[in-house]
Design a protein around this nucleic acid. Sequence first.
RNA 1: GCCCAGGUGGUGGAAUUGGUAUACACGAGGGACUUAAAAUCCCUUGGAGGCAACUCCGUGCGGGUUCAACUCCCGCCCUGGGCACCA
Length: 964
Amino acid sequence: MKYNYQKIEDKWSKKWVADKTFTPDLKNARNPYYALFMFPYPSAEGLHIGNFYAFICTDVMAKYKKLNGFDVFEPFGFDSFGMHLENYALKINERPVEVEKRTTVNFRAQVQAAGLSCDYTREVDTTRQEYYKWTQWIFTKLFERGMAYQKEALLNWCPSCQTVLADEQIEGGVCERCKTTPEKKTMKQWFFRITKYAQRMLDGLDDMDWSEITKSAQKNWIGRSDGARVKFHVIARSEATKQSRDASDRVEVEVFTTRPDTLFGATYFVLSPEHPLVKKITTDEYKKEVEKYIKTAGAKSELERTENKEKTGVFTGAYAINPVNNEKIPVWIADYVMMGYGTGAIMAVPAHDERDFEFAKKYNLPIKQVVAPDIQEYNKTNDLLKCLEVITNKAENKGIKFWLLGGLACAFHVGVIWRDHGDLDLVVKDNKEFDEFIKLIEEEGFKKIKEKEIEKGFINSIYKNKDNIEIDIGKYTGKWDLQDKDFTEEKKELNGIKSRVLSFEFIKKIKNKQAKERKLEKDLLDKKYLEGYVFSDLGIAINSDFLDGLETKEAKKKIIKWLKKKNLGKSEINYRLRDWCISRQRYWGPPVPIIYCEKCGVQAVPESDLPVLLPELDKGWEPAGDGRGPLAKVDEFMNVKCPKCSGPAKREADVMDNFLDSAWYFFRYITPANEKEIFDKKLGKKWLPIDLYVGGNEHAVLHLMYTRFITMFFCDLGLINFDDPFKKFRANGMILKDGKKMSKSKGNVINPEEYGKKVGYDALKTYLLFLGPLSEDRSFTDQGVRGTKRWIEKIYKLEEKILDKYEDSEEVIRKLHQTIKVVQEDFEVEKYNTAIARLMELSNVLSVAKNISKTTWVKYLVIIAPFAPALAEELWSKLGNKESIFTQKNWPGFDSGLVKEDKIQLVIQVNGKLRDTVEVSADISEAKAKKIAQDSEKIRKWIEGKEIVKIIFVKGKLVNIVIK
RNA sequence: GCCCAGGUGGUGGAAUUGGUAUACACGAGGGACUUAAAAUCCCUUGGAGGCAACUCCGUGCGGGUUCAACUCCCGCCCUGGGCACCA
């Protein structure tokens, strides 16, 4: 008899909903387990396979826990507010309210048909007023405590969605909804002070049971950096007041740096173009240029700023005083310094910061090295430089022309010593000069160099004739045209020593060619030397007065102590995280519960007046595009009485970000109809935090960050006593179709409803989970899903073999108990894929057995029930059970005595290689096992005539004979 | 560039955390049943060599530790994700 999955799944899914099989008694529950999946946005296309997958990852665990006697709460609801639904409504020209009504009905029906164990009696929908009343209440509480505030800020304005967006809603420089490039606009908006919890959110991550990948995403988003705040004084003395010693010309400007140990290496100072002090300090002479620069920098779009990273800037004419050595350093403005981070001003240390280095190179600003990667190498090179000074002077007196080449020349160009340049690579003009040069250095420099034990062959580059030179650098020999434009000489200075050096361009040419010949892919000069050695924070301080000789870490500590003592600075921690902008100039969201009264000022709507109802508009709900929400034009909505003075007042016209709706829904599930409070505190204490939460990793920063923020705030309000809402969070991987991303345009979208009809929901769900570990992306194939369909049918057929009184074979009983054990273990770590594999193994064993006892059968039905609930329920009822398989603690448990194998395959290795296996009793003694191993005929062949060094025995596993 | 996660047959993926590499499933090949097809059932299936028993090679690459390495250590390469002129 063929299994009619459609009829049976339909029957049970309806019965479960009607009987409220999965509706727990929250109050009297003894053993609460709260299983949650991210509630869906009710898309018009209906249930998406990605959503569905997250649902079932939670659902199978819920069923497993239920079968184990837990009171499981697996609620369901809708995230219906927001731009997603509103944009769709705009597209089909239908009111959002209507769209919402229609799509939720369809969506709910689909979910129910799939046989999830949800409690549909406590459904939540963010667009219902009994829900968003409390969303607004949260706002008023935040406002009360100064956690919600208004500020003028430079924000992302999406010209297509016609609203501002939070930083989090910009992905890869474009709007995450419509992929439009946002514009920068200065607007007054409402913010939540999420930055107040930055450290708390960071700390909470440490001992949370979340995947590393999600934690790391959050850590990066919060972006903590440890450093110091240092006071600089800027002197703005224009030409006209050159002689003035007026103290008012001095302005204090603070900088933030993560490398206070490099303070002695600061050679210039930069302000962001938006910095308020720019105008004050710019001298008359440079005013024009500075103003021009600010204008062009401000006009640059976000895209230009990120794509074209060539640094630009202008000198202001002002100088800053370096507090550690009172050196005067020039003050520049440049748009590589952002106003929004730190203090909007930096001290520039080109020798040890890539960006400053690039800028200094471009504008010819001095570079001063204050950290050496290796102090010995640095000293060696420094000694070599001193010798070079002597040689240079002598050569010049004699009229000998030479140019430095190679690593040391690079050091001259870069201005920093990054390794031991123990040799001199150089070029002289011709044979004659070469001989003279050699003589010269033998007289003077060579001796010194030799004494210092610098290797021979320090000249390994030579000359040829007037027009061509032949250069030999190590293995490389090549010809270079002396007329080459890049072959120009420069006089460079390194640590106060001047020498003649070939142009950087020319040296790079040679180095690049050299790298190619040696098959080094990367440009040695730029990549390895500069970034790897000079810009890393592992090194020893040099040229830094009292910091000299200290490791970077120690130097940091010492300088901070010093700054603090002199009241010049202090240690500081900065975060990348910004406050959350929640204003949206749209219609489909909860209105911001704020009233503006000319007399009494800005006020939150009192709790008794909540909710501020979103007016039902037939027309005029479309985004206005004038920077204000569409509600601004609705007079009945806008005009109110001031709650304080009862005079005329205006409402706030903006609505709140959709992410606020979804930041607290899991609290509301507990008591969705509660009119008195946001949720029942007693029940909240009992049921929260959530035991398991599953959803897409695309919400790793946005949604999860906001839920944690709101939860921490609830904790501060005293509503709960924990900081983090989800004990365990698992991000489910993406489902691909035949290895490709699904999309409507490709026509490869998997519709769960369609597969429910084609193969049944039990088979579909099992297949999705069987594909691989829950967090990984996996490829769905139509052929693959047939495998689990076959499995379901196979189980159904097993029923024919049931005998009331039958003794199963030892093998069957052992396999059953082993399976129960590993399935339990797999459930503890959500390894559904291997759990299913074990259940399949067991059914393979059962299908070859002659008959199956009823006891075994009952146990088997229970353990497959989380994955194939309809099938299990059907077969369960066929046994005469009146109640659902899920109503009580039916999980069988295993007998550890029966799990153990009494026979094992003893592995015999010779030198670690498998040579034989022998069946022996599981508790075989070491001596016996060793004897068997050596007696084995196969083994004898390998050890004959060889010396046995030792024999390793691993109990219950193997014998390894080590021979020589 | 920095920070996470990963790399195993033709494919999706297993491997008790150092102890028989490739469980389970898909696909493929062969066979049975059938007038035929579908469905179902049985056998084979990492690669190379051999009639065979068997042998050698094999978990991204190169080293190392160990009696024994997919697993641990060092150095790379590649893929996915997060952050990114963040000082």
